[in-house]
Design a protein around this nucleic acid. Structure first.
Lengths: 322, 322
DNA sequence: TCCAGGCTTAAGTATTCCCTTAAGGGACCG
DNA sequence: CGGTCCCTTAAGGGAATACTTAAGCCTGGA
């Protein structure tokens, strides 16, 4: 019964699938399945079993989950405690949604590291919206930047202590639909939508927008980054989604134009999600404070030139700081 | 950072020595030292350093200890939870002092297992008095049978939550000094004391008795078991210590006679020590209840023939159910 | 000053972890 | 009934664990 195995179990149980856990951990499916098999053999119980759509917990698994979850969290706390105890630099692990990751996470974190006098080691990873609560609750990450993760209706799991999350708005923008010079036939559901991978996350801002416009999946063309999608849109290949404030330059130059739809322009707010204050690490608190500064706002508003399409790595999930 | 390493660290920190931890775990000293070295390297801090008599915690080590301790305890809880969840037999791990171990632990546990309908897997290990609180607090054991472990004055460590212990008297006897036919010259401090290894434990009943009589260590001859010591005493090799109720037959047969001293007969009470009720396992609670039964009392009063000297294993510490 | 007890290192070995790719089921859906 | 998605097993390899014995080293005490 290793901590790795327990982490794996927790992730599978909370995400409801081996595949999802494997993705979140950045390993192959068999790796997860095998860790699970080892736990199952040693504890003499299946713990999680296939139950149609999602993996279901057995009775024993249900009892194990809160304990395992706490052990994993304590494992992270242990490292943080030792770090703090020996006066070493703190550590801040950020997870960001794809959009935030592409445009502002890196410059934001760079600026933060600069400002903190390099006293805080900061790393960034990308995660899907559904993964973020799990990653935070189990201390795989300290803060999340992306959509609102505050408690939503129908949230059955996670009534355990310590898993409560707090989302605070840090930046408000609006999503617009943009296109090049090409004519757009018929309704939005018939257009060709040039999107990045976050749009396939139904809980993301872009995903919700597409859902509201009833765009079928067949009409999507997924690009490795938003920047790449915009370039394709400018070439007349279809329409793309963009945070308004990030395409002002392209609009001014006439490369792109705004296309109004029934659902756009749509408000879109980026949130910072953390644990409750008493469970927050010092580094997380510092970062939270930094985000309310004028310097941080400036970075989010004008994140520089963005990342050139070739340099932005597609949704290769970062191995999450094992 | 494995659970094994954390257990090792906790044991070293709480027992104050690598050697003690190695003994308690039933492994060699280098094994402990090495586990510690691995932790130290990974966490980048010494955690515990040599500080004269006992190992002292560094700042980082101080912060780590409560967290590690809780992780270890949760590890045991996890197994228990899964066991309970799948309806498997419960588990009861008993630690006993040497005397209890030699005479009553085995028959007591056998009787308990019988009575519980084999629904509880019971194992017994032997431990020194100083080790018992640590073993209980970190879930290496569920109950302890031996001297009173309730909070004593000067108990500096263990103010952390969950380490509170409750000792309840379960059997009252009295210690007597016995000898064979030989004449005893001078004061008790000059006699030859034939004892078992528990007498070298200063916190044990026998150890305290020897201290009260100012018997120097040089006057001790350590035997592998009390039974063996009594046999030697009967041969005239010196005096021995015995719980009165266990030597009545030998006294009646004239093999031994009681020698009165300034400190004997001395009251000696065996206690059952457990965690607080809400932290107690079901098996521990069941055992506690069983001990108050007439059947248990009978076993403790007349534990059969005892163990023949050759069969009782000297303080070979049982590997503690890792 | 040397000695002794106790912590640490060195060297070697068996075991377990943890990951990979490739291939074998099993359930659900059209 | 075949496809597809997903979980699982098989096989293999590299690294880390966890233990041993033997030998060094540091500190405190006679």
């Amino acid at each position: 019964m290793t901590l790795t195995q327990l982490s794996t179990f927790v992730l599978v149980a909370k995400l409801g699938s081996v595949k999802a856990a494997a993705t979140a951990l950045g390993v192959s499916e068999p790796a997860v399945s095998q860790a699970l098999a080892a736990l199952r053999q040693q504890l003499g119980d299946q713990l999680v079993v296939r139950g149609g759509a999602t993996m279901r917990l057995t009775t024993a698994g249900t009892r194990l989950l809160p304990i395992a979850s706490q052990m994993v969290a304590l494992g992270a706390d242990a490292e943080a405690a030792v770090r703090a105890g020996k006066g070493a630099p703190g550590q801040l692990r950020v997870v960001a949604s794809g959009t935030v990751m592409e445009f502002v996470a890196t410059p934001l974190v760079d600026a933060f590291a600069e400002r903190s006098g390099r006293k805080i080691d900061t790393t960034v990873g990308m995660a899907a919206t559904s993964e973020m609560p799990v990653l935070l609750a189990n201390r795989f990450a300290d803060v999340a930047l992306g959509p609102n993760l505050g408690r939503t209706v129908g949230d059955t799991a996670d009534t355990e202590r310590g898993s409560e999350l707090i989302s605070e708005p840090v930046f408000r923008t609006h999503l617009v639909v943009v296109a090049g010079a090409a004519r757009l036939p018929g309704s939005p559901a018939h257009w060709s939508w040039l999107v990045d991978s976050t749009a396939t996350d139904p809980a993301s801002d872009a995903g919700r927008l597409l859902h509201r416009l009833h765009v079928p999946e067949a009409r999507l063309r997924v690009f490795g980054s938003m920047t790449a999608a915009w370039a394709a849109a400018a070439d007349g290949a279809g329409v793309a989604i963009a945070p308004g404030h990030l395409v002002t330059a392209r609009l001014r130059r006439g490369e792109l134009r705004v296309v109004n739809t029934a659902a756009t322009p749509a408000d879109a707010t980026w949130y910072l999600t953390t644990l409750t204050p008493e469970r927050r690490s010092i580094a997380a608190e510092t970062f939270r404070h930094y985000l309310s500064s004028a310097a941080a706002l400036r970075v989010m508003r004008e994140p520089g030139a963005g990342v050139p399409p070739s340099k932005f790595r597609p949704p290769v999930y970062v191995t999450l700081w094992s």
